[in-house]
Design a protein around this nucleic acid. Structure first.
Length: 313
DNA sequence: AAACCTATCAACCGCCCCCTC
DNA sequence: AGAGGGGGCGGTTGATAGGTT
């Protein structure tokens, strides 16, 4: 369509890091008037930036409801689970992490989780074990699983699209009710995982929702890999996984009082059963929001996310 | 102490989707 | 119906802080 991008406008606009003064101008303007049209905002707010830059700065940094700092184990758990289901859909993933931005989640994935998974021998893109049995056995089963996941993903996207339409309809109704000064019901949660749950009663694919093309029967066995790591309070400060020797000696001497070694088997979120149970747990625990408790929950995370590949595929 | 390397993250870029006209 | 604009998203880059040699 030959669109003119913000960044190529004739007027020389400022780029690079934002100054405190610019931040202040942007905040003050938005607090007073709301952002309105981002394109028009810079001129009105007295900023020599493109609207896009302002939007990004506000959305990723200045917004008051942003949580910064270390990701908790619970948050990491959510990111991995959702990435396994959704892929690089950072905005959707971030929407399940209160006060985290898509940019932050994306950075965290790219700089930490991705590398860690790679060290574990898991392809961060497909969430598939890179090195299976030397003879290649297990590949066909993994491929079948992936194929089935693809079918689920298709069904999920269709359901999501329906929800978006429904959400919009209800949102319009919501606005209408607001105009009538009547307390409206909250808009429906656009939690795609609930759609999944609705179609996976008892952790199995049921009746009419079953993929017409699938011939797969779900196994209760899991894909697990050996893991060594170190948890500091609620946060993972290191887990070199399989690269550290089995006795965890690699960590000894580095540990503080609040730190705890773990050496466990990790169930990787790959099999359908695991996904369903994870999603069930995720939604029933959080009702669409992530609770940040980190005790037994975290332990079970490392027990079930990370349980060894001790059985042949 | 200096040079080099690595990790992190804010910010930019370009594409795509949706809405309006 | 389709052109155009605005906003959103994901990929990538570049600056810089921290670590290592």
């Amino acid at each position: 369509m030959g669109r003119i991008s913000d960044s190529s406008e004739k007027i020389e606009l400022k780029k690079g890091p934002w100054t405190r003064d610019e931040d202040q101008k942007l905040c003050e303007y938005i607090e007073q008037f709301g952002h309105g049209s981002w394109r028009a905002l810079p001129a009105k707010a007295g900023l020599e930036r493109c609207g896009k830059s302002c939007r990004l700065r506000w959305k990723n940094y200045l917004r008051p409801d942003i949580k910064r700092g270390k990701f908790s184990v619970q948050e990491e758990k959510t990111i991995i689970r959702l990435h396994a289901l959704l892929g690089n859909r950072w905005a959707v993933i971030a929407s399940h992490l209160p006060k985290r931005t898509d940019n932050e989640v994306k950075n965290y994935w790219n700089t930490r989780i991705k590398k860690r998974l790679a060290r574990m021998g898991i392809d961060p893109v497909t969430h598939k074990l890179k090195s299976l049995n030397p003879d290649g056995s297990g590949q066909s089963r993994l491929a079948a699983n992936l194929s089935h996941m693809a079918q689920w993903e298709t069904a999920r996207l269709e359901a999501e699209a329906r929800l978006v339409r429904e959400s919009k309809r209800l949102s319009d109704l919501h606005l209408q009710l607001l105009r009538n000064a009547t307390a409206p019901p909250p808009p429906p949660c656009l939690d795609v995982l609930r759609v999944w749950l609705a179609t996976t009663a008892n952790g199995s694919v049921s009746g009419s929702h079953e993929s017409p093309t699938s011939t797969l029967t779900f196994s209760t066995s899991s894909n697990t890999i050996p893991v060594n790591g170190l948890i500091d309070g609620g946060s993972i400060i290191e887990n070199n996984m399989v690269s550290i020797d089995n006795t965890c000696n690699g960590f000894k001497g580095k540990m503080g009082n609040s730190q705890q070694l773990f050496q466990d088997n990790i169930t990787y979120p790959f099999e359908h059963d695991y996904i369903v149970s994870s999603v069930t747990d995720f939604v029933s625990t959080n009702h669409g929001n992530i609770a940040m408790e980190e005790n037994e929950e975290d332990k079970s995370y490392w027990n079930d996310l990370l349980n060894l590949l001790d059985s042949p595929l």
